[in-house]
Design a protein around this nucleic acid. Structure first.
Length: 578
DNA sequence: CACTAGAAAATTTTT
DNA sequence: TTTTCTAGTG
């Protein structure tokens, strides 16, 4: 691809970020400023400037993001592509290459099982959840020191790691710890450029790795401190400042033109954060932020459902009237998403949508049974390829002979000459449950993992994180899950006192969470809250979130509709009710 | 061990 | 209110 072509569609800042050479680079990329685009064009530019693909590494946090970048690179550049990997899978490859062999990496559920086992063995009273949190947080410190912990926890720590050794498995953090150790020993992967996406999500351990990589590579950090919402997972937005300070010289480019949100939304979002300088909208849309406070959750939910009915041209009389005189554009249901702080808050909304006959879908929460089946399959898959066999066998709850038999069936199935029927039958036995057709097809989708070098846990998608946006349905998800997505019509539901910010959470992080939610919208934004809400079976007094104080002037008050829309026909298929 | 009653906790979740 | 965990039975 011609460099001129590559650069001509970029705005000046994007171009500057794409072409900066000779130092570390920080690209500040707010919502809708073309982050992924700049990342991919920079990679292509670096190759044009003579960097070999294998000298470039782009690091992401999710497989989904890595896949997206790879796809964009393929369509823009073709040819040999640079490495695009998650931190963890990059670490895995580095370790395997250096040590010759990689162990199996525990998925989160498996890690919890081992934690339970260690807890029982070491006779610990603390809850597994607490042990997990402490363990993970400690391992994410680059220079952790267990001697500072209490005796009971140290006992647990030792037993946990003894079990990992006995099973011959690693946990996620071990990957980063081992990669760091390799780098510290002076091994240098043949890299010249390392680009880190979502830099605000980097934890200290990952930062320590980047510190070393930065001593012989040019680093490009792309991120937005205002969208840092994963502190509870160890992400630390303060590391952006540290990067600027410690990696000098760092050139900083701020992308200030935002292509997604209308100016009104950017202004409100900036006011929320107390930012003096809002992003500059390049959208021609006019902002409309509607704000409503309701007596209770039911009223809030049904108002939302009615609004959706109205803007989607529902079959009610009211919607004909309204869409007639205020000239609202007819919207597809797939243009609409509803965001909330916690999953449990979706119940009331789902009920209201169902009452109005509005189809909706959410990123699938795999139920317990499906999860169990997938996990069993996962163990069998790993057993078949012969890594950490004893571990997987111990989790499969079948005799070794039977496991071998089953893995034979599985391999036949993978090679395309097996009868799935017999395999699934065999899988059902140890589980004691029936495998549904849906679960079978889910398993079949994962067969391809067998040929990959990484452990399945590094690429396995238990939770389906991709939504099918071709479905004519409203999308429901948590505020967290919405990061990186965009919808023309966004509802932020339950923006209440005591809900956002959530008690005991970092207040500023909660503020950023609301910022992320607001900036998902490319056209209209609805914010609602309720005066009272049921939480854990208790009715609590809430009211609007304190974060909304001072923003009221930027909102349009919600119009209460008295008329109920007529139930629409249910011809359209409901994608998911569960 | 598998099952269960009663107690305790309960967000968010990239790998 | 609902889910998860624990200690105690059978």
């Amino acid at each position: 691809m011609d460099v001129k072509d590559l650069l001509k569609d970029l705005n000046p800042r994007q171009r500057e970020a794409t072409t900066a050479l000779g130092s570390h680079l920080l690209i500040v990329a707010g919502p809708g400023t073309g982050k992924t685009r700049v990342l991919t064009s920079r990679i292509i530019y670096l190759m044009e400037q003579g960097a070999a693909p294998e000298e470039i590494l782009a690091v992401t946090f999710t497989n989904k993001a890595a896949k997206e970048i790879r796809q964009r690179l393929r369509s823009a550049a073709g040819g040999r592509l640079p490495q695009v990997a998650t931190f963890h899978s990059w670490a895995y490859h580095l370790i395997s290459k250096t040590l010759g062999e990689g162990a199996y990496v525990l998925g989160e559920a498996e890690q919890l099982e081992i934690i339970r086992e260690a807890r029982a063995n070491a006779d610990i009273k603390k809850r597994p959840k607490e042990l997990y949190d402490r363990l993970v947080f400690l391992k994410q410190e680059p220079d952790f020191d267990t001697s500072l912990e209490d005796e009971e926890f140290r006992r647990f720590w030792d037993e946990y790691h003894r079990l990992l050794g006995e099973y011959g498995v690693w946990d996620y953090d071990d990957l980063l710890i081992k990669a760091l150790a390799i780098l510290k020993k002076g091994q240098r992967p043949p890299l010249r450029h390392v680009l880190v996406d979502e830099f605000q999500d980097v934890n200290r351990l990952q930062y320590a790795i980047l510190e070393i990589l930065g001593s012989f590579c040019h680093l490009t950090a792309i991120g937005d401190k205002n969208q840092s919402i994963y502190g509870f997972r160890g992400a630390d937005p303060a590391l952006i400042k540290r990067f600027k300070r410690e990696f000098s010289p760092v050139k900083t480019v701020e992308l200030l033109d935002a292509y997604r949100c209308p100016q009104g939304i950017l202004d409100a979002a900036a006011a929320l954060l107390g930012e003096k300088r809002p992003l500059v909208s390049k959208s021609s849309k006019r902002a409309e932020i509607v704000f409503g406070v309701f007596e209770n959750e039911e009223k809030e939910a049904s108002w939302i459902a009615h609004q959706i009915d109205r803007i989607s041209g529902g079959m009610s009389f009211e919607s004909f009237n309204v869409s007639g005189h205020d000239g609202l554009e007819q919207r597809s249901l797939s243009d609409v998403c509803i965001l909330y702080r916690t999953r449990s808050m979706s119940r009331k909304i789902e009920a209201a949508l169902t009452r109005c006959g509005i189809p909706f879908h959410t990123p699938i929460r795999t139920n317990r049974k499906t999860k169990e089946i997938l996990t069993a399959f996962h163990h069998l898959l790993e057993f078949s390829r012969g890594r950490a066999r004893r571990f997987h066998l111990s989790r499969l709850k079948v005799a070794e002979e039977e496991a071998k038999n089953l893995s034979g069936l599985l391999e036949a199935l993978i090679k395309g000459r097996g009868e799935g029927h017999e395999f699934f039958k065999g899988l059902e036995k140890p589980l004691g449950v029936e495998v549904t057709e849906e679960e079978k097809s889910l398993i079949l989708q994962h067969l391809g993992l067998f040929d990959r070098k990484e452990p399945a846990s590094l690429v396995f998608k238990e939770e389906q994180d991709e939504l099918d946006f071709s479905v004519e349905a409203v999308t429901l998800m948590t505020l967290h899950a919405s990061k990186g997505l965009e919808f023309p019509v966004v509802f932020l539901a339950g923006i209440d006192n005591k809900i956002v910010p959530w008690k005991e959470s970092d207040e500023e992080e909660e503020r950023r969470l609301l910022y992320v939610g607001m900036t998902r919208s490319s056209e209209s934004l609805f914010i609602t809250s309720s005066r009272r809400r049921r939480l854990y079976g208790r009715m609590i007094k809430t009211g609007p979130s304190p974060f909304l104080k001072g923003l009221e002037g930027l909102f349009t008050p919600a119009q209460r509709s008295s008329k109920r829309p007529r139930k629409r026909s249910m011809k359209k298929k409901q994608k998911s009710l569960f």
